[in-house]
């Protein structure tokens, strides 16, 4: 029982960062940036490159890798999305473009580094530490702490920093933000930077726990999208609740239902929320006011 709770917290830690970073890219740019999945994957693979191919120690490889993921995310915005936005592309077009980016870059990773599982774990398999009858490895504890710290930092940043407020302004009403003197293109670029950095970190955290494959991003992102929708896009607290609910449901659900349904549970919850409370857990219904 306790083990299931611990497992849920670990799952939560693994998906929360991806979810939050995806959600504010979505809020500010109003489209599903699917290529976020491959930015997530790239964090892990860049670390692999730096650690295994170039021989850097982990504590140098990781920051370098996060920087590279950030550059990748920004490059996507600068080259593809910005051009499309200039041509007044709809969010559907941007979504398709992001899917395309995802497929291409994921396959580049497969081509260059191979499809098999790669590892950046140091040391050997560790038997977990026993706490109240549940087992958790030191790596997993590290992952949870990192995730929680990052969530709190992000929340503070969004609320109080100047850039955080700029992001909220652009997401709320781009034209008004522009008039107030906020450069919305620059804001979007910085949003991508922050989001991609977080995604890169998330990818590294997952790889430290279960190793990496080129397709790991899509899986993680799917869970993130579900968590975001059921938590309500608009508040970080909502997303935290959504991710927690999803993690709990998946881990406890497997207890009673056969484990083949693990992924299906996530999507069934999504269906239910979309049918009953589409604005999410803590979301509020937005009423459109026309002038």
């Amino acid at each position: 029982m306790i083990q299931l709770l611990v497992n849920s917290v670990i799952t939560f830690g693994l998906i929360i960062i991806v979810t939050i970073s995806f959600s504010f890219i979505y809020k500010v740019t109003k489209f599903f940036h699917f290529a976020h999945a491959v930015v997530f994957t790239s964090g892990a693979y860049f670390t692999f490159l730096f650690k295994v191919w170039l021989g850097f120690p982990l504590f140098i490889a990781i920051p370098l890798a996060v920087a590279c993921s950030t550059i990748l995310g920004c490059a996507m915005d600068l080259t593809v999305y910005r051009t499309l936005r200039k041509r007044k592309a709809t969010s559907l077009v941007l979504l398709l473009a992001s899917l395309g980016l995802n497929v291409v870059i994921q396959n580049v990773i497969s081509m260059v580094l191979g499809d098999d599982t790669k590892s950046i774990r140091t040391g050997d398999v560790q038997v977990g530490i026993e706490i109240f009858g549940a087992y958790i490895t030191p790596t997993q504890i590290g992952i949870i702490i990192t995730s929680i710290v990052l969530v709190i930092l992000t929340a503070i940043f969004l609320k109080y920093a100047k850039f955080g407020k700029a992001m909220r302004a652009v997401s709320n009403n781009p034209e008004l933000a522009l008039i107030s003197g906020i450069d919305s293109e620059r804001t979007i670029l910085y949003t991508f930077a922050l989001g991609s950095a977080l995604a890169g970190i998330a990818g590294i955290l997952v790889a430290l726990d279960v190793d990496m494959t080129p397709t790991m991003g899509m899986n993680a992102l799917m869970m993130g999208v579900v968590a975001m929708i059921i938590g309500g896009v608009n508040s970080i607290t909502g997303i935290v609740f959504g991710s927690l609910l999803l993690a709990l449901a998946q881990n406890f659900g497997v207890w009673k239902i056969s484990s083949q349904w693990q992924d299906a549970i996530a999507f069934i919850i999504l269906f239910l929320f979309l049918l009953i409370k589409p604005e999410g857990f803590l979301g509020k219904k937005i009423k459109k006011v026309s002038v």
């Binding site: 299931l4 279960v210 899986n219 497997v254 207890w255 484990s259 992924d263």
Partner: peptide
């Protein structure tokens, strides 16, 4: 007799069930 999907990489839930 538990099944798992090919795309799954996190088996903690199924293993917890097994352990119990």
């Amino acid at each position: 007799d538990e099944g798992y999907q090919e795309t799954n990489t996190d088996y903690r839930s199924i293993l917890t069930k097994a352990k119990l």
